[in-house]
Design a protein around this nucleic acid. Structure first.
Lengths: 216, 216
DNA sequence: CGGCTGATTGAGGCTCGTCAAATGTCGTGG
DNA sequence: CCACGACATTTGACGAGCCTCAATCAGCCG
């Protein structure tokens, strides 16, 4: 089961949450159901209420790259183009709030704090994306896997006990690896005593200090 | 020599150029000179007037990942944090316009079009970053190199004749490869007749159609 | 208890990295 | 103008890390 997740670690005064009217229209999606696809009109911006969502892109030959995992509180689908450049799917059964893009830009035009919140959201996404680039460009398989585990721990406010909300394939496609490499890396981390793998989707960080040193 | 470069391919109505007062304070930097470094106060936003700039991050052990190349017209250093998370250096002798961050946020607070321009700039950066992630996560060395060459061609509005403004090391650190692999890939592209390499920094795209098929 | 899906493990191969040497390029000074 | 030296790039040989393909194992649900 997934721990409760708050949207962001930093000042929430600038969060869209504070600006937006109370929960409007929501939709429910089943595991692996598409929320929006590349090329579709980008009429909505979304916020995860519960569950988890992945956004990704696909090359002609089927290679998939996951951009980002989105947990409760996170916004996604905020694009500047008329149509979506990326795809979004529910990773688990999920309820998602849908905000009309038009309404949002009206709000931003009227209220400075709303515009600032949108800007901040995009800038935070850019920061995370830059971290992702560094990871994919210059880190080893082990560093990538450890980095993801620590990221999940932080974002889910988990201490040592980790509920991993994604499959090995999702992890691989986020990290630019194959499922086999992800799997092998996890068992080798277990062999070294750094983590434990009670079940496939439940992990324990046994030596967080050492793990953090690995990605320093 | 570098071809003249315009800032962006799309609508410039929303560009900061249209909003900002005529050229304010500028600074000149020599090749490889630092413009700002990680951890420094982010007091300015920058625009390349002439020359080229790289922004990058470095891991403890020296591994470097270039985030982005910035050419004439491009803005960079636009971060939301108080201090810079990344580094910026001149790739060639460059003149750079410096805009006080405070002045920019005042402007954004007063004028909706300025706020929108800033937002758009950040969102475009995010798009480029997502493309970069896809490249690093799921593309082969050859696809990465070809992708970069085509990107340079587009951004410099070059047809077939390319002036490459960066070293092999810069290319490698942008593409998540080594200089040796970049070099080997370029000569193999030459052997296949897809490009020509008259000099180290001057390339000719001999079969652009075929090159574009390679990164489809 | 099967059967299905997803994860792990194993063997072998390919791509790209490492280390080293050769070659090219460019600026400087004779 | 040419020679030299410093540095960048290319090339080669080899090895490591990750991928591919295939088999086995573990959960999960009817």
């Amino acid at each position: 089961m997934l721990s409760p997740i708050r949207a962001k670690t930093f000042e929430n005064d600038y969060s869209l949450d504070a600006v937006l009217p109370a929960p409007g229209a929501c939709a429910r999606f089943h595991r692996d159901e598409e929320i929006f696809g590349e090329g579709e009109a980008a009429d909505y911006v979304y916020q995860v209420i519960s569950g988890a969502v992945r956004t990704y892109r696909i090359l002609r030959d089927g290679r998939r790259q996951i951009d980002e995992f989105h947990f409760a509180g996170d916004y996604f689908g905020l694009e500047m183009t008329e149509t979506h450049r990326i795809n979004a799917e529910a990773m688990s059964d999920a309820t998602v709030r849908m905000i009309r893009r038009g309404a949002l830009s009206d709000l931003a035009a009227q209220r400075g704090d709303a515009a600032r919140a949108l800007f901040r959201l995009t800038a935070e996404g850019l920061q995370r994306c830059q971290d992702h680039v560094l990871m994919l460009g210059r880190r080893s398989a082990q560093e990538r896997v450890v980095g993801l585990l620590l990221d999940i721990a932080t974002r889910t406010r988990a201490d040592a006990e980790l509920d991993v909300p994604m499959s090995r394939q999702d992890m691989a496609d986020y990290l630019g690896l194959t499922i086999e490499t992800v799997s092998r890396t996890l068992t080798s981390l277990q062999d070294e005593g750094l983590i434990a793998l009670p079940t496939v989707r439940h992990m324990v960080l046994k030596d967080r200090r050492a793990l953090e040193r690995l990605v320093a």
